[in-house]
């Protein structure tokens, strides 16, 4: 039995297998084709903090493959679990299901769950820690939009210090000879613990215009107000990292913009209509990618 606590739990071959299967499953994810590969299987979605996007895409993935879901969606629903340890809650839920998706506010929760669970644990995000299915859907989107993963020039923009999605995506892309451009204000630069393990080429920039023309992919993250003690500082910084259609005239015509969503105003809505906007397809891709992962973990062995 395999748990997916971090993207490191999957080797390149498994990742490529999941991305390939996700592509095949696109028509099923869209409801144009039926599938019963998870017929009779039950997925438990245990969300100790709300994350509607992650939960709904898992539930959609499971049901599109003929399986069903049980679980809870937010902490208020779990008040009956108060006083019960996470380990005990997981042991119980594992007894009622074939796999468990866990979302939890504390780092390391999924790892702990994997130590006590008799069914596969899928980490749906643990605090500032890992969120491997987000990384998988990011990889899928890049491959699907650009046609390959190998040797791309990828810019990451915004809050690179606290943004966990860009941390694990960097680590995953590092396996594919990516050239990284980290674009952020100095105070929100990519932390050393991430850059230390990158063996591919990377560079840091404060100004997007310096590198925009080189990029195949631009991954945008939100700069949060809470990171700045002074509101004026925030406004200045956030303003300097906004993307709009005018700015994108300097980009390669095939350059794609990704964003983990929800966005606030870091990407102007006039970008939505450009050929660069890939973030809505990216959000949808959560479904086929999670379908492929669920099949791999609990589907009937071929």
């Amino acid at each position: 039995m395999k748990h997916i606590v971090s993207i490191e739990d999957l080797d390149n071959k498994s990742i490529m297998g999941i991305l390939k299967r996700a592509k095949e499953l696109l028509p099923v994810a869209k409801g144009n084709k039926k599938s019963k590969t998870l017929d009779g299987k039950i997925l438990a979605t245990c969300f100790f903090e709300p994350s509607t996007r992650t939960r709904l895409s898992f539930e959609s993935a499971m049901q599109r493959l003929g399986g069903s879901c049980i679980g809870f969606a937010d902490p208020s629903a779990t008040s009956h679990l108060k006083g019960e340890t996470l380990s005990d809650a997981i042991r119980m839920v594992a007894g009622y299901s074939d796999a468990v998706v866990l979302r939890h506010p504390r780092e390391g929760a999924a790892k702990l769950a994997s130590e006590v669970s008799e069914v596969p644990i899928i980490n749906g995000g643990d605090g500032a820690g890992q969120h491997p299915t987000q990384t998988l859907l990011d990889l899928f989107t890049i491959k699907d939009e650009i046609g390959k993963l190998e040797g791309l020039k990828v810019g990451m923009l915004g809050d690179l210090r606290y943004g966990r999605t860009v941390h694990s995506l960097s680590q995953a892309l590092n396996r594919f000879n990516t050239k990284f451009f980290f674009i952020s204000p100095k105070s929100l630069a990519m932390p050393e613990h991430v850059t230390d393990v990158l063996d591919s080429h990377w560079s840091t920039h404060e100004n997007l215009k310096e590198v925009l023309g080189d990029l195949d992919v631009l991954y945008v993250t939100r700069i949060q107000k809470e990171r700045f003690p002074d509101l004026e500082d925030y406004k200045k910084v956030a303003g300097a990292y906004k993307i709009n259609a005018e700015l994108l005239k300097n980009a390669k015509s095939k350059m794609k913009i990704l964003h983990p969503l929800p966005r606030v105003d870091e990407i102007s809505t006039d970008v939505d209509e450009t050929k660069h906007a890939a973030y809505f397809r990216q959000a949808f891709n959560g479904v086929p990618v999670r379908m492929a992962l669920l099949e791999k973990l609990i589907g009937a062995k071929k």
Binding site: T85, L86, S87, H104, R106, E107, G108, K111, L112, A128
Partner: peptide
């Protein structure tokens, strides 16, 4: 890490 599960769960 104060937010680590090992600091926040009985018996771990």
């Amino acid at each position: 890490n104060e937010n680590c599960i090992s600091n926040n769960e009985r018996g771990v």
